[in-house]
Design a protein around this nucleic acid. Structure first.
Length: 309
DNA sequence: ATCCAGGCTCCTG
DNA sequence: CAGGAGCATGGA
């Protein structure tokens, strides 16, 4: 990965894998009308981000005319200093998964009866992440045992009530609330947004751990994935599904696997042409063949849910 | 209306 | 330890 630099006209072009599947990345990013932390317009994704130099608004191009075959960034509320610029570029690289060689995964898919047709149709799709640990945990806890539409509604309420905003281009852009802000709340504040009592307590627990420095992405990554899972599930309200979801989308462990995920079960059922969902034991057996790429298998299965494969 | 949704905790037996 | 109820609400 080479260092991204700013062209004289203000465009930052990021090295992008030659096989990157821009279209499906855009489809995934644009899957909910209620998404409030970024907005897709054509091949451009607008996203506000906190940096050490303050919030920035990015227009992120995915294979646009001004940067074919690449991901590019144009800053829309003033050009930040080199430091914050690099932070923004790093965020985008991680978010859009620009640095993973998925050759091995695709080879594995080729001989897998469940994944082969999905990989065929989505070849080159990368795992869109959630780089912020707080945001990833909040999103995942919010999404426990409810449909995705309602999960987006909850997230939107949380962001609109407690998040920060950035004014640019004549409108307001939302940023996820900071850990300190959430840590100062009471469970009833979140219950008012229709989080369940249990989810409210879990979110505040997580926010306080992060705000107090007892839980951090850096430490989890440093300790390694075999310790990250028990570290996460030791937090009340965070079970194996949530831990693996976060390991998959935030910690970027390529083999994380949310075994009990109903989306995964549904996708497998469809691929097998069944009417009944597979048993957990069957999911375990099938997914064993996807190791050490089970997180990518999961993401591809999710993508297939919105498609006719 | 009824069932299920990108689960987790707690309580049985 | 495995199995099941309760949670709490929105969509289809």
């Amino acid at each position: 990965m080479t260092k991204a630099h700013l062209s004289p006209d203000g465009l930052m072009v990021l090295d992008t894998p030659g096989d990157y599947h821009f279209e499906e990345a855009l489809v995934y990013l644009n899957r909910s009308e209620s998404e409030c932390l970024h907005q897709v317009e054509g091949r451009t994704v607008y996203k506000a981000l906190h940096t050490s130099g303050g919030p920035v608004l990015m227009a992120i191009g995915l294979d646009t005319e001004e940067a074919r075959g690449a991901v590019s960034i144009r800053f829309r509320n003033g050009v930040p200093e080199p430091g914050p610029r690099e932070e923004a570029a790093r965020y985008v690289r991680e978010w859009l998964d620009l640095d993973t060689d998925i050759g091995e995964f695709l080879a594995l898919c080729a001989s897998d009866p469940i994944l082969a047709p999905i990989a065929d149709r989505n070849r080159g799709l990368r795992l869109i992440g959630v780089p912020s640990l707080l945001e990833a945990l909040c999103w995942t806890v919010a999404g426990q045992q409810i449909n995705l539409a309602f999960a987006y509604t909850l997230k939107k309420r949380l962001v609109e009530t407690y998040g920060t905003r950035l004014e640019a281009e004549g409108r307001e852009w939302r940023l996820f609330p900071g850990a300190q802000t959430l840590a100062a709340l009471e469970p009833s504040d979140l219950q008012a947004l229709q989080f369940t009592r249990s989810k409210s307590e879990t979110l505040l627990r997580v926010a306080r751990l992060i705000a107090g420095g007892e839980l951090s992405k850096e430490a989890l990554l440093l300790e390694g994935m075999s310790r990250a899972e028990p570290a996460l599930t030791s937090i009340k309200g965070i079970g194996p599904w949530t831990a693996n979801y976060v390991m998959m989308r935030c910690l970027r462990h390529p083999d994380a696997f949310p075994l009990t995920d109903v989306g995964v079960h549904h996708a497998i059922r469809r691929r097998l042409g069944r009417t009944e969902k597979p048993s957990l034991q069957e999911v375990e057996e099938l997914s064993a063949a996807w190791s050490p790429w089970r997180a990518y298998a999961t993401f591809y299965l999710w993508a297939s849910l919105a498609q006719d494969v």
